[in-house]
Amino acid sequence: MIPAAFDYHAPESLSDALALLDQHGEDAKVLAGGMSLLPMLKIRLAQVGHLVDIGRIPGLEYAKEEGGFLKIGAATKEAALERSDLIRSKYPILLDTAAVIADPLVRNRATVGGNLAHGDPANDHPATMLALGASVVVRGPKGERAIPVDQFFRGLFTTALASNEILTEIRIPVPPARSGGAYLKLERKVGDFATAGAAAQVTLGAGGAIEKAGIGLTNAGPTPIKAVEAEKFLAGKRPDDQTLQEAGRLAARAASPSPDRRGAADYKREMARVLTVRALKAAIRRAGGPS
């Protein structure tokens, strides 16, 4: 299948890319790994006048801790995230997430920034970034701004990014001691989008109670969902089974999945509940807590 005709640009600097976006407005789209955009163009679900490929702009691929943040360059490949010693040793929730995105060949092209900027509630990083309390750094003609991820997703395939802006970096606050996180995804087969997915990040207090919890859900509504009620409920509670089960119920209540070939809405909501409980348990274990 061949996409409808478009013009292709391969700027070698961020400022050139921004100028192109500014010039072509809504008629232009940023191309990163292309693992979502190119299939959409091929099946003609999407059509663009201009593709601005940011793949040749140096300095957008990294994962490093700096100034209290884990900073991930927007064009960092999922495969690079999977191989990063820093991610493997300190951020297993990100390894969980990257490892279940599509398949290994796709992950050699797919980027972390693209997974967020595409605004697809079926993508896996959004839930994890919601749980981690991440922000995205966005560059536009007027300079740089940071958008908290919980304000980034506006609707199906719609984000807070303006047509003349580029997502350049993801910033995750370095979690305090006794923190842990996990991402779990139910998929019919390798490479499928989630039937349901849940990310949980917890910090335990000195007494073993949950100090702070972050929960994100994948493919549970028109946007990625932050399970705020469940998060609030967990704060200050001891992580016993009854408490975690209640958090699961609250998280499922925040979900509004659509029925499709992956299952009925009730089934998906139930899976969101189960996965939330399991992700919380894994997160608590990784934080050094019980269960």
């Binding site: 391969a10 190119l38 099946i43 793949g55 599509a102 060949l105």
Partner: peptide
């Protein structure tokens, strides 16, 4: 032809990728 099957896998700068989902200009 939809990025699923991998029959079109080639190495691009040494890494296996699905060549049905890469533009020639890339």
């Amino acid at each position: 032809d939809t990025t699923h099957c991998g029959a079109c896998t080639v190495l691009l700068d040494g890494e296996p990728v699905k060549s049905c989902t890469v533009l020639a200009v890339q």
